[in-house]
Every structure is written in structure tokens, then in C-alpha cells.
């Protein structure tokens, strides 16, 4: 069962687009059911956001598959040069690439049958997002997958962040 809340802060999306691409119920459901997350643009540098997010998702029990044009291995796992080269089923395609590259990534995500496309904070391409949605994928835009996992699991709160979640129900942990 998901927690009802309206997360308004820290996004550049309009109210209308927030309803489409930042639906709390969709996000909680995705994070609770996904097993495999491909990260496009996962950096080899340990202090970059993408590397920290990948490391976090591994810690939380997800299988992370890095997509990188050159690297062979990041975070101890094999990299693939493109989404199409991944030989297994991908649940979420998480993207750390500029907005201009999103249409190509969405096209590939549709082709490999991914369940969802997720573009990180400030990576916004609404046309591509709409194409993914029309193809039946779940779409999240301008949110950080690590922060959202922490928001609903209760860990983001430990960092003093305003999660915007209000509930008197006893917390149930979000499973990976």
C-alpha cells in the first residue's frame, strides 16, 4: 500500500507535468517491484552523483547494470555500451545524460521492453517522456531515484530533508 502525498519541492515541472511524471503511487510501486536497473551515463568517478546513486541502489538490493560507451566495469559489474546490448530483462532505465540524448535512449528502452524510464534531476525532455508513456512505459522525470527510494523508505528523512510525507501510519519498509 502506498503513502498518499504530493511532493511539490525541487522540480522544474509544471503542476500538470508533475501529475504525469512524478506520480507518488507510480514511484512507490516501481521501486517496490523493480529488480534490475540499467543506469545510462553511470560515471566511473566515485564522487559523481551517478556513481553514488548506482552504489546506493546496489546496497539496497537492486541489480545495477551500467551503460557506458567505453568502460568495461563500474561498481564491480560489467558495463554495456548501449541498452540494446544488455542480454537480460531491465525493469527501470535510469538516465544521467543530457536532455538532448533522451529521445534516443527512450527509443532503445521501448525496444528492449523496459518497464520504466526515469530521468534524473534537471534532465527534462517532455517530448521523449510523452513518447515513452504512449508506448506503455512508466515515466519519471526530474526526480532522483536515490532520493525517492529514501523518501518513501524513511532514510532521506535522516539527512534532515523535507520529504513532504505526512502520515500517522506505522512505516512499512520499501523492499527492493
Amino acid at each position: 500500500m502506498s503513502i498518499a502525498c504530493d511532493v511539490r519541492l525541487n522540480t522544474r515541472l509544471s503542476e500538470e507535468d508533475r501529475a504525469k511524471y512524478q506520480n507518488g503511487e507510480v514511484i512507490q510501486n516501481l521501486l517496490a517491484t523493480a529488480k534490475t536497473i540499467a543506469i545510462v551515463g553511470l560515471s566511473t568517478e566515485k564522487t559523481k552523483a551517478s556513481n553514488m546513486v548506482g552504489s546506493y541502489l546496489q546496497d539496497e538490493g537492486y541489480k545495477v547494470i551500467p551503460v557506458h560507451p567505453k568502460a568495461e566495469e563500474i561498481l564491480g559489474v560489467k558495463c554495456y555500451p548501449s541498452l540494446s546490448a544488455i542480454p537480460e530483462k531491465v525493469d527501470i532505465v535510469d538516465v544521467f545524460r543530457p536532455a538532448s540524448e533522451i529521445p534516443g535512449i527512450v527509443e532503445e528502452a521501448i525496444k528492449i521492453g523496459a518497464k520504466a524510464v526515469w530521468t534524473q534531476l534537471r534532465i527534462i525532455n517532455l517530448e521523449a517522456a510523452s513518447a515513452a508513456k504512449e508506448a506503455g512505459l512508466e515515466v519519471v522525470v526530474d526526480r532522483c531515484i536515490k532520493m525517492e527510494h529514501g523518501r518513501y523508505g524513511g532514510m532521506l528523512h535522516w539527512a534532515g530533508m523535507n520529504t513532504e510525507v505526512i502520515s500517522a501510519q506505522r512505516r512499512r519498509n520499501l523492499g527492493a
Partner: peptide, 26 residues
């Protein structure tokens, strides 16, 4: 390395204090 959420030492963060922090932020 700041990769994982959680508490290390109460000079940096503490679960009781975190409630005060999120509440005032809200």
C-alpha cells in the same frame, strides 16, 4: 563516503534531531 543514508555519530546527525530538522523545513 556519503553514498548511503544513515547515522554515524550524533555530532553529524541523530534520529531525534532529524525530526526537528524535517519539521522546521516543512
Amino acid at each position: 563516503e556519503l553514498k548511503q543514508y544513515g547515522n554515524i555519530y550524533s555530532r553529524i546527525s541523530n534520529p531525534t534531531t532529524a525530526v526537528l530538522e524535517e519539521r522546521i523545513a516543512s
